[in-house]
């Protein structure tokens, strides 16, 4: 799939000041790429999720820069960032916050937890108990926290970047599929190229590049971008294509569990953001195709036969993408 940006459609005038919005997005991207070198696709998906108001799951083996990516994202945008290290003994209240009794005023006072931030970095989310995991995931879905009957709204933009080690590693509670479904996209960072790794030795050995990362955008800029993403046009052909794609995962014999309707919404929303990042005012099938694997694969369960043949959901999805006809426009 081409991720080339040279041949963008010209589009028509963006509402507001699109050039400014795009410039902001480009600045954020550049800033993150100074930290995560040689992984433009990963950075692009991360930004796509940010502007599509989704949550990102980064799954990979330890030490390839999962946390670094999340941190860089938080640093590049000048907004509140909270980091939660998930451990087996972490409690739900440690995330959402607790109401404590104020001795002087004789009333309960809500102490907000770390989830009250623009970007929440949930590190090694699959090390916590399912109960704690679900507390965070509820916040993600509702964008609000309910403690002791009181509802506290979360600030926009709100994005959870969770990292997890592959499910078969020691001391992990794999995320149930219902909770994986709430993440808009899952990416893995992967090993750097040999050259990038060489560069890394040179730069990172002295000091962390994160220290040099300055905020290049404000939270308000991100909100503007999010609003802009909502105006991106999705033609009926694209909508049908997305539905076709989702249906194909449900009928594929290689999958035990297909994608949910929420996945459809996520896919279209992500495609809008993706198109916006390319400076286009409308979604094209290539956006859907580029996002199909990151947005869909983590929600799917392979059938036993596919498992025996070592066909991962990623491969199944890319097979479907490679063969599913794009609806004819007429």
């Amino acid at each position: 799939m081409s991720l080339d940006t040279r041949y963008n459609g010209h589009g028509d005038g963006l509402p507001g000041n699109p050039d400014g919005v795009l410039a902001t997005a480009a600045r954020i991207r550049q800033a993150i790429e100074t930290v995560i070198e040689g992984k433009p696709d990963v950075v692009r998906i991360a930004l796509t999720v940010l502007f599509a108001e989704g949550h990102l799951l980064i799954e990979d083996i330890p030490g390839v820069g999962k946390t670094m990516l999340a941190k860089a994202l938080g640093r590049a945008v000048n907004c509140s960032v909270q980091r939660i290290q998930f451990t087996p003994d972490l409690l739900p209240a440690d995330i959402t916050g607790v109401s404590v009794y104020h001795q002087e005023r004789h009333e309960f006072e809500f102490n907000p937890g770390p989830v009250f931030a623009n970007i929440v970095l949930g590190d090694e989310i699959n090390r916590a108990s399912p109960k704690t995991q679900s507390a965070l995931l509820e916040c993600m879905e509702e964008t609000q926290v309910s403690v002791d009957g009181a509802t506290h709204s979360l600030e926009r933009p709100f994005m959870v970047v969770a990292t997890q080690n592959p499910a078969d590693m020691e001391g992990t509670y794999p995320l149930p599929e219902a909770q994986r479904d709430r993440f808009m996209a899952r990416i893995s960072v992967g090993y750097p190229t040999p050259q990038a790794e060489l560069d890394m030795i040179d730069t990172h050995s002295s000091r962390s590049p994160l220290d040099d990362l300055r905020a290049v955008a404000e939270a308000a800029d991100v909100r503007t971008m999010v609003d802009h993403v909502r105006t991106i046009h999705v033609a009926s052909g694209i909508r049908r294509y997305a539905v076709d794609l989702i249906s194909a995962t449900r009928t594929s014999s290689a999958l035990r569990l297909g994608a949910s309707p929420r996945a459809t919404l996520h896919l279209v929303r992500a495609a809008r953001a993706y198109a916006a990042l390319e400076g286009r005012s409308y979604v094209v099938p290539d956006d859907i195709q580029a996002l199909a694997v990151p947005v869909l694969a983590h929600r799917l369960l392979p059938s036993p036969e596919a498992q025996m043949e070592r066909r991962t959901p990623e491969r199944v999805v890319s097979d479907i993408v490679a063969h599913l006809p794009i609806p004819s426009p007429r």
Binding site: G9, H10, G237
Partner: peptide, 18 residues
């Protein structure tokens, strides 16, 4: 070739094709 492809893409998917 690109002009043809972009025109088709825009005609299919853009709100106001160019």
């Amino acid at each position: 070739l690109w002009r043809i492809a972009m025109a088709e893409e825009s005609a299919r998917y853009a709100p106001r094709p160019e």
